[in-house]
Structure formats: C-alpha cells, structure tokens
Simulated scan of single mutants.
Amino acid sequence: MAELYEPDPAGLAEVGRSPEMQAAMVGIATAAVSGIRAISPVKSGEYRAGFAVEPTTNIAGWKNEERAAARIVNTVPYASAVERKHRILSRISSIVESG
C-alpha cells in the first residue's frame, strides 16, 4: 500500500529560508540579468552595466513567512526612465515566469 504524503509546514518553511534556496533565487535572478543585458538599449553602456542582483528575503505564503528571494536592481539614475520607455523588466519577467 502506498504511503500518503503528509506535508511538514515547518520543514517547508525551513527549506524556503535555506542557503540553498537563497542560492537558487540568486541564480535565477542572475540568469535574468543576462537576458536583460541582451535586450537592453545601449547608448553609453551604463544602463546595461548598472544591473546587479541582491540577495534578500520576502514575506510570502499562506502564513506570511519569510522566504529567500533575490532582487534585480539598476544603479544608474535614469533607469526608471529607460524602463518606462522600453519595458525591459516587464519583458524579461514574462520570459522568466514561463520557464
């Protein structure tokens, strides 16, 4: 007879905060930055070079628990203007979400 799966909420929460999960989130964000750089407009190259990945956490799940996450940032002062015009992050998020 097959065993039934019994979820372990504490164990799953631990996995969500683990260094391995943090590394996975940073890896996904780093791959996304490569894609962002490939489709970014280039005049001086500063915008393209201004992208970075920051490990962080967020609150998620039905219990609002802290989980590993990664944030993509751009440090050039005019990054928001480029995003409004070209929608780079919107375009790459569609690609990342689709796998």
Rank of each mutant, 00 (worst) to 15 (best):
R67V: 14
S44N: 09
V15R: 13
R84N: 14
V96N: 09
S90C: 06
N74M: 11
I95W: 09
E66F: 00
G61W: 01
G35H: 09
G11H: 07
E46V: 12
V53R: 02
H86I: 00
L12P: 02
R48T: 10
A2M: 05
E14C: 04
T57K: 01
R91T: 15
R87N: 13
V76D: 05
S80W: 12
G35L: 14
I88S: 05
A13F: 01
H86F: 14
E14D: 13
V76L: 07
A68Y: 00
V73M: 03
G11C: 04
G61H: 04
R37H: 04
S80L: 14
V96F: 07
A70D: 02
I39C: 05
P55V: 10
L12C: 02
I59P: 00
V76R: 09
A79R: 07
N74S: 14
Y47F: 15
A69S: 13
A49G: 13
A49T: 04
A29W: 02
A2F: 12
K85N: 11
R48D: 08
R87V: 02
L89E: 03
E20V: 03
E20Y: 00
K43I: 06
T57D: 02
V26M: 09
R48P: 00
V82M: 14
V26H: 02
R37L: 09
S94Y: 09
A79M: 05
Y5K: 04
P7G: 04
A10P: 01
Y47C: 07
T56I: 07
I59Y: 01
P55N: 08
K85V: 04
E3S: 15
L89T: 01
N58I: 15
A13Y: 00
E66W: 00
V96T: 12
R67H: 05
L4V: 11
T56C: 06
S44D: 10
A81Y: 10
T75C: 01
G27S: 13
V82Q: 05
P7A: 13
V53S: 04
V33M: 06
K63A: 14
A13V: 01
R84S: 15
P19G: 13
T56H: 00
I92M: 14
I28Y: 03
R84F: 09
E65H: 08
L4W: 08
V42P: 02
E83L: 11
S34D: 15
G45A: 10
S44R: 09
A2S: 13
T30M: 04
A31L: 08
M25Y: 00
S40H: 03
W62D: 15
W62Q: 15
M25Q: 13
A38Y: 08
A70P: 02
M25E: 08
S18E: 03
A2G: 11
E6Y: 04
Y47I: 03
E20K: 12
G16H: 01
A38R: 09
G16K: 05
P19L: 07
E83W: 09
S44L: 09
P19C: 04
V26E: 12
S98Q: 13
I59V: 15
R91L: 11
P19A: 15
Y47M: 12
S18C: 05
W62R: 15
A68Q: 09
V33D: 10
A60T: 14
I95Q: 11
P9H: 08
E6R: 01
T75Q: 10
N64P: 00
A60Q: 07
I88D: 06
E6A: 11
A49C: 07
